[in-house]
Amino acid sequence: MQFHCNGTAIEIAVDQLIVAGWTGRNIEAVQHHIDELAAIGVAPPSTVPLYYRVSNALLTQDDAIQVVGEESSGEVEPLLLKVAGNLYLGLGSDHTDRGLEAHSVAASKQICAKPVASEVWAFDEVADHLDQIELKCSIKEDGAWVAYQDGTLASIRPLAELMAGADFADNMAMLCGTLGAIGGVRPASDYKMEMVDPVLGRSLAFGYQARNLPVIS
């Protein structure tokens, strides 16, 4: 897979893809996310954080993914990549099947593609102000874009801590957790996601569609 950083192309053959879950820094925020998922039937985690190993083939830069049924939704998340000893910060979505999540969180993570932005930042350039970096997600409802998630990386456990917990190494990628959903977790077909660096005055952005496939038996 190819990414771009400051105009330079970066090739990475991802050997391992990890989805870190329950990564809120504030225990009350973690409980809020647990509660909002419990409201749709998802069992609480055995421990926090958790590191779900999923297929590396799930990563995609396509502007549309296909999902089975109408119960999936996306989540804006920071993305970490390590290539030849160099660390990069990007932007992705942990798209998840909420219906399946009620039976198995691990399976729900595995069944959906994980869209990511093609642009990344060198981690060293943002390491001293990570908590100020903003994450935003909008979804389309009734033909209009509405705010779905909005917060900063200060709400997520320090990325260095998450990397240490995952034994993060070369040719690995990790989605690092998300923010609470404004109005509750719910399905949507269209997403716009953005990561804003207010210190260096720049942003990463991408969007995608989730196209539903029929459920047949």
Rank of each mutant, 00 (worst) to 15 (best):
L50G: 02
H95E: 10
Y51V: 12
Q149G: 05
D97H: 01
N26L: 13
D94I: 05
L135T: 02
Q110N: 13
D15Y: 08
V48T: 14
F168S: 13
T178A: 01
R53V: 09
L91K: 07
S93V: 06
M163N: 06
R98L: 09
D94K: 03
A173M: 06
L135E: 09
D128G: 03
V126L: 15
L130I: 15
F3W: 14
F206A: 01
E134L: 10
A20P: 06
V196I: 15
D63N: 11
D167R: 14
G165T: 08
I156M: 06
I111M: 08
I111S: 06
V48R: 12
Y51E: 09
E75H: 12
L162M: 06
M172L: 09
S73E: 12
N6M: 00
Q66E: 00
I40L: 15
Q2M: 08
P214L: 05
I34L: 05
A210C: 12
V30P: 00
A13S: 14
A173G: 08
E161L: 11
A106C: 01
V215T: 08
I10P: 00
Q66R: 00
Q66C: 04
E134Q: 15
A164I: 07
V105D: 00
V30T: 13
V76P: 12
A39T: 02
V215G: 08
A106E: 04
V76R: 07
A107I: 00
L159T: 09
G21V: 01
M163G: 01
L87D: 13
I65C: 02
I133N: 10
G143L: 04
V105K: 07
Q209K: 03
M195L: 15
Q16M: 11
L153R: 06
R98G: 08
G85R: 09
L100C: 03
E71V: 01
V83T: 14
D63V: 02
A181R: 05
Q110Y: 01
M1E: 04
R202G: 01
E28N: 11
E101F: 00
E77Y: 09
I12F: 09
R211G: 03
S55Q: 04
A210I: 15
I182T: 12
V199S: 07
I10F: 02
V199R: 11
M172K: 03
I12L: 13
A188W: 10
L59M: 08
L100I: 00
G90P: 05
G74Q: 05
Q110I: 05
D94F: 02
A20W: 04
Q132N: 10
L80H: 11
D131I: 03
A64F: 09
E141I: 06
